[in-house]
Design a protein around this nucleic acid. Structure first.
Lengths: 239, 239
DNA sequence: GTCTATAGTGGGATAGAC
DNA sequence: GTCTATCCCACTATAGAC
């Protein structure tokens, strides 16, 4: 779940029509299956939904469902897409009107909580699958690269459109670090049983000013060396 | 699993009636099943191990395996307990000879990597289960409280036995924060495909001095207020 | 309370015919 | 591309032995 910025489905075997396009018929069938799956996920959750049920609801055979979606997990990517689009849209309008770094950061994090809220109940099951390292759904997987980059780009906009003054070396790395912060928020969120995810919202409200102050602190000589080393560590450890 | 075996010897042992514990026979069978499971996990991974296989390797019936472990996942809980005990033991000897904070911290984190190494290949499957919020296997769950407390206690020893000078408010919270650091290391570790988890060891080696410097920095007035606020945030957000 | 044997059920995933 | 038939395995149920 984490990013919930997901990746366009590539579970589809590219049959005849090249250029990544599907036959109209194939696209239709595929959409049918996905729609049925998302409906059942909403109704019965992830575990409560069976591939047989999806196939039946989509009016196709079980084998056909597997022809388009290699596994039950792959169906979840459609769910990711929906949230990712909604988050990007909601965040965009907030970013258009704010210039302060903490306000922008808080807006983006809070809109994620807003957008994801309706799915909180089922998020646990999704999160479980996304957390598996070898899963294509993992936010760290190569399959998720595009989605991850898109999400990081959102935080790049947060930084670049803001008045933040920060150690130069850190500035380039900051979007990625903020994305990691979102990962942490998501982790907290899936464990948050408070009504309307109140505690996650509190976390965001209280953590953002701290991040802001910490970032600005890196301009002081006493902290700058440390900030540089953090950047170096992240860079080294990333790949 | 580790603590419930305290059945005092008696001249005439009563056939059963374990006071919250297991009869010796039961403990023996249970251990047998767990050992067989861990062996198969190592050999064939989590998904490659079947409950039938576990039962066969342990020389018990399938039903008996389920008598002791309600599900395949519950076998993983046994793994957690075992690794936690092994980690505590391995770390203890390192802690006995080191007094510097970064050396102690690094030793504890590295012994974890050492102890967990044999299971790295299939740790992903474990991690997947642990990531599910409502799972009793989650490190944040109430069922995991004992193991979590034991782990935090280890980091309390790291701090208390060391020469670390840190903002007083932070000192009390530090063990818990270091435990969170370990969670982060574990997250990195499960995604680490380098031989012998080289990159995780690099991460530890490079991150520990940073943590050390950051902790000491909190004594400076300029950072102290921020440290206090971090402590306040953690405290608020935890419960 | 501990254990066996056996016979299910349900659901994820696959093979191969058409 | 779509189907039917099938496999495999986690898990359950049951009935009974000690």
């Amino acid at each position: 779940m984490t990013t919930l910025t997901a990746v366009p489905d590539r579970a589809v075997p590219p049959p005849e029509q090249p250029a990544g396009g599907l036959t109209p018929k194939a696209a239709q069938t595929r959409a049918q299956i996905l729609e049925a799956a998302l409906g059942l996920f909403r109704e019965s959750g992830y575990d409560g939904t069976t591939m047989r049920g999806v196939a039946r609801a989509a009016d196709v055979s079980l084998g056909n469902a597997y022809y388009y979606f290699a596994s039950k997990e792959h169906l979840v990517q459609g769910f990711y897409d929906q949230i990712q689009v909604a988050h990007a849209e909601a965040a965009a309008s907030a970013l258009a009107s704010e210039t302060g770094f903490p306000e922008r950061l808080r807006a983006v994090l809070e809109t994620w909580v807003d957008v994801a809220a309706p799915y909180h109940e089922f998020a646990g099951a999704f999160f479980k699958n996304a957390a598996e390292p070898r899963s294509p759904l993992s936010p760290f997987s190569t399959e998720s690269t595009a989605a991850r980059e898109a999400s990081i780009a959102l935080y790049r906009r947060v930084v670049e459109g803001s008045d933040l003054k920060v150690a130069p070396a850190l500035r380039a790395q900051l979007p990625e670090l903020l994305w990691l912060l979102q990962m942490g928020v998501v982790l907290f969120w899936v464990h948050d049983d408070s009504p309307a995810q109140r505690r996650t919202r509190d976390l965001v409200a209280n953590a953002v000013p701290l991040v802001d102050r910490l970032a600005r602190l890196t301009r002081l000589p006493v902290a700058r060396g440390l900030a540089d080393d953090v950047v170096a560590l992240v860079r080294k450890v990333r790949g």
